[in-house]
Amino acid sequence: CFWAPQAAFSQLEGVLSSTAGYASVVNSTDSFGRPSYFSVCRGDGRTEAVQVEYDPRKVSYEQLLRTFWQEHDASIVVPGKEDQYRSVIWAHDEQQQRIAEMTVREAKEQYETTGRDTPATVVVRIDDSTPGRIFIPAETYHQNFWAKTRAKFFGLAVVQLLLVLGTQSSPQLSSLLGTAVFVQQAIIFWWFLESAELVFSAARGMLAKEQ
């Protein structure tokens, strides 16, 4: 799943942006068509991935790969979800490919030492002439999922506290009721919009399957 890795990469100093999306292990995705979460779940050949833009003066490629290995167990293969959850490192140049392959070898030794199955991680060299055909950003509701979820629950908790306090006799606290109700409705509406996007994405995936 790309939620936790995206959150982890976003917290690293030097990471300029991280985007959850769907990627292929070949340099052309024309045969797949436009992906959606549901097409990937059905097994269209793509993998959940995170695209990271970073400042090499502040964080190295090796540091990014350490986070990659920390955020998942590459020895786990989910039956029926081999493509969706495959362990992949996409390298943009020869140096990145060399470093990535080195970390795979190190991981295999570490996994063997700890008694785990050999990691199934593969390294894919991206054709820089068509990088946009490898990675497609995921739907909006997937982006920064954990950060948004924490913000929603924290916001609702604060609003609930204000509503409870606002029912007390204090005039100052009572004046907060209107603001608290507005914030609560805004958070619920935010959740509704993301749920609607999920429904539309599902419908699009079902229509694509029928065609």
Rank of each mutant, 00 (worst) to 15 (best):
R98M: 12
R34H: 11
T47M: 04
E62R: 14
V26E: 01
Y37S: 12
D83W: 12
A91I: 12
V40C: 00
D83T: 07
E112L: 04
T29A: 04
H72N: 10
G80I: 12
D30Q: 07
V50I: 13
Q96F: 03
S31G: 05
S87A: 13
Q96T: 15
V52G: 02
R42L: 01
P79I: 11
Y85P: 09
Q97H: 13
L65K: 10
T103C: 07
Q84M: 13
R57Y: 03
P35Q: 14
W90N: 08
A107F: 00
S39K: 13
S28Q: 13
V104T: 00
E101N: 03
V52S: 03
T47K: 04
Y61R: 01
Q51L: 13
F68L: 10
G45I: 02
P79V: 15
Q110E: 08
L64Q: 13
V104S: 02
T67W: 06
V52D: 01
V78Y: 11
P35A: 08
V59E: 06
V40W: 12
G45F: 00
R86L: 06
E71H: 13
K81H: 08
S75K: 05
R46E: 03
E94H: 15
V78G: 02
D30C: 04
A49N: 06
Q70D: 10
A107Y: 10
T103S: 10
K58S: 10
G33S: 08
G80F: 05
Y54C: 00
H92V: 08
G80S: 12
V78Q: 15
I89A: 00
M102E: 10
Q110A: 12
Q95G: 04
A74Y: 02
I76N: 03
Q63V: 00
E82N: 15
V78C: 14
Q51Y: 05
Y85N: 13
I89C: 02
K58Q: 11
Q70R: 01
D83S: 11
V78I: 14
E112T: 01
V59S: 01
V104H: 02
E82A: 10
L65E: 10
Y54R: 06
E106L: 08
V25K: 11
I99Y: 13
S31L: 02
Y37T: 14
M102W: 09
V26S: 02
S28N: 15
Y37C: 14
E82G: 09
V77R: 09
A107W: 06
R98I: 13
S60V: 01
S36Q: 12
Y54M: 08
V25R: 11
Q70F: 02
R86P: 04
Q51F: 01
V78T: 14
Q70A: 01
A107K: 14
Y37V: 05
A49K: 07
S75E: 07
V52Q: 07
P79L: 12
P35E: 01
K108V: 01
S39Y: 15
H72D: 03
M102R: 09
Q97E: 14
R105E: 04
A100Q: 09
T103W: 14
H72Y: 07
D44F: 12
E82W: 10
A49C: 00
N27S: 01
K58Y: 00
I76A: 05
Y111K: 04
E101A: 06
Q63R: 15
R86K: 08
V88T: 09
E101P: 02
R98Q: 12
R34K: 07
E48D: 14
C41L: 09
R86N: 09
E106G: 07
E62G: 06
R98E: 14
D44K: 10
G80Y: 08
